[in-house]
Simulated scan of single mutants.
Amino acid sequence: MYPDRKRIRESRLTVRLDEYEDELLRAMSKYLGEHPSTLLRDLALRQAEELFGVSRDTLQAGSLPHRAA
């Protein structure tokens, strides 16, 4: 049914926010028209991509580039 069963989103993480952080996230999600959890997932993945110096296309291809030391 699925071409790649590893792409099924079954993993779950819990993030605890204080009232100010929650208000900020909800205001941003309302402004962008996104669900807060979708927005938070996208923000986290973008930050991880930036930190590792890869793009989502590279990650989906299944190989990470080797960084020079």
Rank of each mutant, 00 (worst) to 15 (best):
I8A: 14
T38I: 15
L45R: 01
I8H: 13
H35I: 13
G33V: 03
I8E: 14
L40C: 10
L13V: 10
L39P: 09
G53A: 05
Y31K: 08
S63F: 08
A69H: 01
Q47D: 15
E10D: 12
T58W: 03
Y20L: 13
R16V: 15
L17Q: 03
E23M: 09
G62N: 00
H66Q: 13
R46C: 10
F52T: 03
E50L: 09
P65G: 01
L43C: 07
R12D: 00
A44R: 00
S63E: 15
A27D: 13
R46P: 10
A61N: 08
G62C: 05
L13A: 10
D18Q: 05
A48H: 01
K6H: 13
D18H: 04
E49F: 05
Y2G: 12
R12H: 08
D22E: 14
Y2E: 15
R5E: 15
A48R: 01
D42V: 06
D57N: 09
R5F: 14
Q60G: 10
H35F: 07
L51S: 05
L39W: 04
S11T: 01
V15N: 03
L32Q: 06
V15M: 02
L17I: 02
L40P: 04
A44H: 01
H35P: 15
D42W: 05
R41Q: 13
H35T: 14
E21S: 07
E34Q: 09
S29I: 09
K30E: 11
L43K: 00
L17N: 02
M28N: 09
L40A: 14
A61K: 03
T38Q: 11
L39E: 06
A61Q: 11
T14K: 10
E19T: 09
E34R: 10
L32C: 09
H35A: 14
D22G: 05
M28H: 06
L45S: 06
L32G: 04
D42F: 07
V15I: 11
L43G: 09
I8R: 15
D22W: 02
R56A: 15
A48C: 11
D18F: 12
D18Y: 05
P36A: 03
A27Q: 08
E21G: 03
R46G: 12
L17T: 02
R26S: 11
Q60V: 14
Y31W: 11
D42Y: 00
L32T: 04
M28A: 15
A48T: 02
K6T: 14
Q47K: 03
K6R: 15
R56I: 15
A27T: 07
E49Y: 04
R5Y: 13
K6F: 13
L40V: 04
